[in-house]
């Protein structure tokens, strides 16, 4: 069907119905009433734990690195996926791991069908995906991830364990407060995800189980210096 024909039908329906036109909506972003940083972090940690995330509150990026190395050392192999250093709050993150003989799986996905599938096969072996965040939301314990260059979507999707790094100044009280500050960031890449806890389902007799298609474990490392 042609666009103008479709829209014309819709317009005719609206006119027939005589729906009230509402011009100004009083809707505003809910900003939340917490401004104190320590309280915000506390709430964020509390809510993230409530949705079954593992949170690690650390004082500097060196302890953050140690936390990640600890997680990596528990894995069956040394393969991992991650965002580019530019997007991570730990300086030279990937270089450090490279020196420790960890293998960074390149997650650039080519167009060609065969190459694409062999890349997926390779990426599937990665045990951990490490990403930064655009923001954290204290009232729901959520993290927000974008997909600009160097911020692969698959790092937080294909792996069984997702580790997200966030600095304490990135935590907003609510989604409303983030949108009123940075709403352009939500649409500046092709994909923006608001992630609240690890993947889950209750489809079978309403019993909650974690890790169906996405990562079953989500670690959030909060760097507060």
């Amino acid at each position: 069907m042609q666009r103008n024909q479709f829209v014309k039908t819709v317009r005719r329906s609206i006119n027939l119905n005589d729906l009230p036109t509402i011009n100004s909506l009083p809707i505003k972003n809910k900003l939340g009433n917490i401004t104190n940083r320590a309280t915000l972090i506390k709430q964020f940690v509390h809510e993230a734990n409530a949705v079954k995330c593992h949170t690690h509150l650390v004082n500097d990026h060196e302890i953050a690195m140690d936390t990640i190395l600890n997680l990596l050392s528990d894995q069956p192999n040394k393969k991992y996926m991650s965002w580019d250093d530019k997007w991570l709050p730990i300086p030279n993150f990937n270089t450090i791991l490279k020196n420790l003989k960890y293998e960074h799986c390149n997650n650039y996905i080519p167009q060609d069908r065969e190459k694409r599938q062999s890349t997926y096969k390779h990426l599937e072996q990665a045990c951990i995906g490490i990403t930064g965040c655009s923001a954290g939301l204290a009232d729901t314990g959520s993290i927000i991830l974008e997909s600009q260059a160097g911020q692969g979507r698959l790092c937080s999707l294909l792996v069984p364990i997702h580790v997200a790094l966030i600095t304490s100044n990135q935590i907003y009280p609510t989604m409303g407060s983030y949108l009123s500050d940075k709403s352009d960031n939500v649409t500046r890449s092709s994909n923006c995800n608001i992630i609240t806890g690890p993947s889950r389902t209750s489809d079978i007799t309403q019993t909650l189980t974690l890790g169906i298609h996405g990562p079953g474990t989500l670690h959030i490392v909060i760097i507060d210096n």
């Binding site: 650039y108 997909s147 649409t187």
Partner: peptide, 16 residues
């Protein structure tokens, strides 16, 4: 858990 906001197809410099 996932509120997935998609704004157009993959852009030229993006990975996946």
């Amino acid at each position: 858990v996932y509120n997935n906001i998609i704004t157009g197809p993959k852009r030229t410099n993006e990975l996946d």
